[in-house]
Design a protein around this nucleic acid. Structure first.
Lengths: 170, 170
DNA sequence: TATTGTTATACTCTATAACTATA
DNA sequence: TATAGTTATAGAGTATAACAATA
């Protein structure tokens, strides 16, 4: 267990990391804000999925997810297919145009990082990724009610876990 | 130099770290949003300073800093003293009430982290802090026009570097 | 003229709550 | 009754640009 001074410092770093995020946002195309980019990225990485699953990966409320998805769908970057197993649900899928868009995003971020992190070693970047992932896990425990979600490798079936959405108004 | 796959993963982690920040924001008092907390924290750590210096530490535009500062000043947590050396400038200083407020914030964040990071070692937290600091440095290079700012230990005089503000409208 | 700081405006992201259509 | 998703609304954070006072 770490000490208080460290916690305060970590809090400071988390607060300040926003500057890096904003820097990343500046290289995005004007019609593709960070939220849209995140949707494309996650669909590209995990494959087709439902809204609820995407909301979970984005770690935002489903209502927020719905807005982002509407944005990218309106531009033809994804399609929303009906789910044969559940008529309430919709399956999200990248379109070919969306894949192109995603490739463009990859080029942009790679270029930015290659420039900014030119003096970082492969190992250092790996360490940072590992620790940030762990941090998210440690915090994620609370909203997923202590349920581990073991990162499926494929566009998988279902995950009837507690989802990230506005609590049903009792 | 790291590879493209790593850069994409890092971009993903940066995008997702927002969930942790929001989690931190939820434990704050309702009259002290994250922006206000950051102002108090930086004044507590670095001592009295001018707006421009604070804007630089916050890594946001001076206009944004002005808003945050107005918020905390309105609540009596800081005072804005005239700068004898420059009548345009104002020296920011925590009030005793502000110090109390800051102590409360420290208690809250420490409690949160102690709970969430109970299984982290001191060394792991230190590693994460170190790498996040380095990441900010690597990105910070661009807006401070490649000038290293060597973190003064005391409420220091001046830093006539390129500041963080809206570019003067030519 | 240039700089410090303030303010007005606009945009993005987010959560809450109410609503629909299914289950 | 409960769940998947949508939409309306409100709040926080940010940047841009125009402005006032001073250097």
């Amino acid at each position: 267990m770490a000490g208080q001074a460290q916690f305060e410092e970590l809090a400071r770093q988390l607060s300040a990391i926003g500057a890096v995020k904003r820097d990343m946002g500046r290289i995005l195309p004007s019609d593709c804000p960070a939220g849209s980019a995140a949707v494309l990225t996650l669909l590209g990485r995990h494959g087709d999925m439902r809204m609820s699953k995407l909301a979970e990966l984005l770690a935002v409320d489903m209502s927020v997810t719905s807005r982002h998805v509407a944005h990218v769908a309106a531009r033809g970057w994804i399609e929303r297919l009906p789910d044969p197993a559940d008529k309430r649900s919709r399956i999200l899928r990248l379109t070919p145009v969306g894949v192109d868009r995603l490739d463009d995003l990859y080029r942009r971020t790679t270029h930015l990082f290659a420039e900014r992190l030119s003096d970082w070693t492969d190992d250092e970047v790996g360490q940072l990724i590992r620790l940030m992932t762990r941090l998210r896990d440690s915090f994620g425990d609370c909203r997923t009610s202590a349920v581990r979600i073991p990162e499926p490798a494929a566009p998988v079936v279902e995950e009837t876990t507690l989802t990230t959405r506005t609590p049903a108004s009792t």
